[in-house]
């Protein structure tokens, strides 16, 4: 490596980062416009979502009051502009489903998401590289014939099913990991040991479950489920598995 290459690389990298940042401005503008437009076009009523079960017994007066309080009336370009101007000043608004400021909601979850992704990524890279290299040593050998189908199976299987299988294997059969969350349900503190042990299961299965999780969650804000393995709806699918001892 020559000494001159490094000073040359730094401005190049900075230019790249700068260009990317500049490009992000119109992209973000378009995306937020699209989101507000989609929300306005959908029949989805945020007041009913906010009110939950109580919304079905509330009086019309209360529902109208909520709509006014949540600032949901007015045309969507205007509401988007109001949101955008506050967002630029650092106020991302309030989450109606979590009853707290959006910035706080994201902040509380960021650490766990990073842990989950990092652990999942490390596991995937380590195991994947090791197995891949080992399998490639003897093409068509026993290891290759085991590893290759093993790599395809999670791709083909429904992610929530793999999630359930993971719970069944690690939590019920082997009893090495909790069935959900970062710790046992009864335990309140997260320790390094526990966290380290338990993060493996959610990250491996959680990474697989994620696409389905997103689809199933509909209009809720992303990331609100923390590090939990969430097995989505199709319940009958799972009952065969669940009837196992």
């Amino acid at each position: 490596m020559s000494g001159a290459a490094i000073p040359a690389a730094v401005p190049a990298a900075a230019r790249l980062v700068g260009r990317r940042l500049l490009a992000a401005v119109p992209v973000l503008a378009a995306v937020t416009f699209g989101v507000f437009a989609l929300a306005a076009a959908s029949p989805f009523d945020p007041v009913q979502q906010y009110a939950g079960a109580a919304g079905l017994s509330a009086s019309q007066e209360t529902l109208d009051q909520l709509r006014a309080n949540l600032a949901l009336d007015g045309p969507f370009p205007q509401r988007r502009w109001e949101w955008l101007t506050s967002a630029v000043q650092g106020d991302l608004g309030d989450s109606t489903s979590l009853r707290q400021p959006v910035a706080q909601a994201i902040g509380e979850r960021l650490g766990w998401s990073v842990l989950l992704c990092a652990a999942g990524f490390c596991f995937a890279v380590t195991a994947g590289t090791a197995l891949g290299v080992a399998a490639a040593r003897r093409r068509g050998g026993l290891l290759d014939r085991i590893v290759t189908p093993l790599a395809y199976t999670p791709e083909a299987a429904p992610p929530f099913w793999i999630g359930l299988l993971g719970i069944w294997l690690f939590a019920i059969r082997l009893d090495v990991l909790p069935a959900g969350g970062l710790t046992d349900s009864g335990s309140d503190v997260v320790t390094a040991g526990r966290c380290c042990g338990t993060s493996r299961c959610p990250s491996a299965a959680g990474a697989l479950v994620r696409p389905h999780r997103r689809a199933g969650r509909g209009l809720r804000s992303p990331g609100e489920r923390g590090g939990q393995i969430r097995t989505p709806r199709p319940r009958r699918y799972a009952s065969g598995l669940m009837s196992l001892p």
Binding site: L115, A119, C122, S187, V189, V190, S199
Partner: peptide, 23 residues
Amino acid sequence: ATAAAVLAGAAACSAPGGGEGSG
């Protein structure tokens, strides 16, 4: 190095206090 990074990450997110099971 990877294993060390994972462990460090796990330790960083731990909450204070001893671990207790549901018992």
